[in-house]
Amino acid sequence: MRMLTKAILVAGVIAVSATLAGFVIPPHIDKSETYIVKKGDTLWDIAGVYMKKNTYAPRQQDEFMHGIIEHNYDRLFVPRVTSHDRSGATIYPGDELEIVWQEKLDK
């Protein structure tokens, strides 16, 4: 019985591998832009504007916002966690955020 179970598992792995090997990633291009934070801006609002440009792999607004935080974390947020701002996710006018998204290419 154990030998049959192993054989089934191996066959399954081979079938899945063969399927994934045939998977083709549609053509897309990575884009980025530096955004200068203005008075009254929030990460949520900035994410709302830029997520509309992300046509290759659409994301929810909160996912896109967390992507902005993650991409800019070392430059903006790490120094602040150890200084006056303990939240680590506050932006200020004049901050530069690099916003990254992917656009689908038409064939």
Rank of each mutant, 00 (worst) to 15 (best):
V49N: 13
L4D: 09
Y50E: 01
D45G: 07
K53V: 09
R59S: 13
K39D: 10
A47S: 11
L4W: 14
A21C: 11
Q61I: 14
H66W: 12
L76R: 03
N72C: 00
I29F: 13
S17N: 14
G88Y: 00
K52P: 10
V49Y: 10
A21T: 09
W101I: 13
F64N: 01
I8D: 03
I91E: 02
R2S: 15
E63F: 01
V16D: 08
V78Y: 07
Y56P: 03
I68A: 02
E96T: 05
T34M: 15
Y73L: 01
G12C: 09
K6P: 02
A7W: 15
I91W: 05
S32V: 12
G22P: 03
M65G: 01
I68C: 03
G94S: 05
M51S: 15
A18S: 13
A15H: 13
Q61H: 04
G22K: 07
I8N: 04
A18I: 09
M3R: 11
D74L: 11
R80S: 00
V10S: 10
A89L: 12
Y56E: 04
K31L: 07
T19G: 09
V78A: 09
G40H: 14
N54S: 06
E63R: 02
D41L: 04
G12H: 08
M3Q: 07
I46Q: 08
R2A: 06
F64V: 03
A7S: 12
Y92I: 04
G94A: 04
S17G: 08
A47I: 07
I14N: 14
K6Q: 15
G12Q: 12
K104A: 09
F23N: 01
V78W: 07
A89Y: 14
N54E: 15
K53F: 11
A57K: 10
T55F: 03
L20T: 06
A11K: 02
V37R: 04
Y56G: 02
P93A: 06
W101V: 10
K53P: 05
L20E: 15
A11N: 01
P79Q: 03
Y92W: 08
H66L: 14
P79L: 01
